[in-house]
Simulated scan of single mutants.
Amino acid sequence: MPRPLVARIDLAAIRHNYRYAKQLAPASRAVAVIKANAYGHGAVAVARTLAAEADAFGVACAEEAMELRESGIDNPILLMEGVFEPAELALAERHRLTPVVHSPEQLLWLLQARPGRPLSCWLKMDTGMHRVGLAPRAFQEAYRCLRACPHVADIVLMSHLARADELAHPGTTDQLAVFDAHVRDMDSPQSLANSAAIMGWTAARRQWLRPGIMLYGATPLPADHPASAPLRRGMCLESALIAIRELDAGAAVGYGGRFVCSTPTRVGVVSIGYADGYPRHARDGTPVAVKGRRTRIIGRVSMDMLTVDLTPVPDARVGDPVQLWGDRVDPNEVAAASDTIAYQLFAGLSRRVRLIHQDADADADAS
Rank of each mutant, 00 (worst) to 15 (best):
A52V: 05
L68S: 05
G82T: 10
G58I: 07
D74P: 00
E64N: 12
E64R: 08
L68T: 13
A52F: 05
V83G: 13
M66T: 06
F57N: 10
L68E: 04
M80C: 06
D74R: 12
E70P: 03
I73E: 02
V83R: 06
V83C: 03
V59A: 07
F57T: 11
E64I: 09
L79W: 01
F57Y: 10
E67K: 14
R69Y: 06
L79R: 03
N75L: 07
E85G: 14
S71V: 04
V59S: 03
E63V: 10
I77W: 08
A60F: 06
E67A: 03
E81F: 14
E53N: 11
E67C: 08
E70L: 11
A51N: 03
N75C: 01
E63W: 14
E70C: 10
E85M: 13
L78C: 04
A51I: 09
E63T: 08
E67L: 08
A54H: 09
F84T: 14
C61E: 13
E53M: 06
D55H: 11
M80A: 13
G58N: 11
R69V: 05
R69W: 00
M80Q: 14
V83Q: 11
V59R: 01
E53Y: 10
A52T: 13
A51D: 09
C61R: 13
A62I: 09
G58D: 03
G72I: 00
A62W: 02
M80L: 15
F84S: 15
S71F: 00
G72D: 07
D55G: 08
I77Q: 11
A56P: 10
E85I: 15
V83K: 07
R69C: 01
V59L: 01
A56R: 12
A54Y: 09
L79N: 09
I73P: 08
C61N: 07
A51Q: 11
L79M: 14
E81Q: 14
G72L: 02
E67V: 12
I73Y: 01
A65D: 11
M66G: 11
F57E: 07
C61V: 06
A62D: 11
P76G: 03
C61L: 12
L78P: 08
V83W: 04
A54D: 13
S71D: 14
A56C: 07
V83L: 12
G72M: 04
E67T: 13
F57W: 04
M80N: 08
A56V: 14
N75M: 01
S71P: 04
A54P: 09
E67D: 08
A60R: 08
G72C: 03
G72A: 02
E63M: 05
E85W: 10
E70H: 15
A51V: 10
M80H: 14
C61P: 11
L78G: 04
V59N: 00
N75E: 12
A65C: 04
V59T: 06
N75H: 07
A56W: 08
N75G: 12
I73S: 05
V83T: 04
M80Y: 13
A60S: 15
A52Q: 15
P76S: 07
F57Q: 10
E70W: 09
D55A: 02
L79C: 06
D55M: 09
F57C: 03
L79Q: 02
E85P: 10
A62N: 12
A65M: 02
L79Y: 05
R69T: 05
L68R: 04
E67I: 07
I73L: 00
A60D: 00
E81A: 08
L68K: 06
R69M: 03
A52C: 07
A52P: 14
M66Q: 12
E63H: 06
E64Q: 01
